[in-house]
Amino acid sequence: MTTMTGSRPTLSPAARIARMHRQGKLTALLLFLPPALVLFTLFVIWPIFNAANLSFFKWSGYGAIDNFIGTQNYQRLANHSVFHQSLWNSVKLILASLFIQIPLALTLALLIYKKTSANTAFRLIFFAPYILAEIASGVIWSFIFDGDFGVSGQIAAALGIDPFYILADRQFAFLAIITVVVWKYFGYHMMIFIAALQAVPDDLIEAAEIDGAGRWQKVFYVKLPLIMHAIKLSAFFAIVGALQVFDIIIPLTNGGPSNSTHSIVSYLYTYGLAQLNVGYGAAVGVVLFVLCMVTAFSYRRLAMGKGGAL
């Protein structure tokens, strides 16, 4: 094997292919690359470029795409107060996911990660909301928040106070959505943490005990450092997931009252698809795509260390 140090002879592309052929790699490449490449190009790359192209047109979804309007869709987006609100809402969702959902999931995971039958039951209960379809969770919670016929209405009646309509209130409606999002996804993060905690070697914990570590010291100096990779991964899923929240908002508030509870995706759906401004919707989609990409790459670089290793 040649050493990697020193100047490496640069091979011409033809020579490289010839070498691959000699090594038998070319056949494998030609055989196995096209299916994945074609599918990826067809269903990922092509739609992205198509959407980017569409975002420079005004198109209602009907007829030919011929009304080129340059960057007008983006200008309109930059000036639209509802879009600003939905960006801010997405930021709030990210913050809630990072600072409420993940600590909650972590605490519960630490409490119930050991294999006992009671813990299994708890795990099942906490994980159950995640299994539920998003849209179903939204509908269920809209019944819970309903001040007339719902659970909150019944509680108010039992207490003898006026019913409170949280989803009709501009100030509190988004808080209700955050509650549902946390409720829905904490179980998922909890499961990631439980899996990681179960992989922490017992002898390390025992060693810490012998060294006289207390309950909290074991958590902070042994368990958490050893599952840091899982926490980082979880945080990544939480951020990207928060950017994409949609199905929960539609049944709960449909973006209201006064368009104050849109996420970026529900904004895209409402102003792009439902109002037949497909070009405008594409522009929102491009912005969302860029946000997700920037988040993903900068997160890899900042949190996951060199080369994206966990």
């Binding site: 928040f145 001040g147 007339d148 019913p163 309509y165 009709a168 508030t253 009252p257």
Partner: peptide, 15 residues
């Protein structure tokens, strides 16, 4: 009625 901004049209018709 209270909470009218969280009331859909079918629900309002029922009320």
């Amino acid at each position: 009625q209270p909470g009218y901004m969280d009331t859909t049209q079918p629900k309002a018709a029922g009320l």
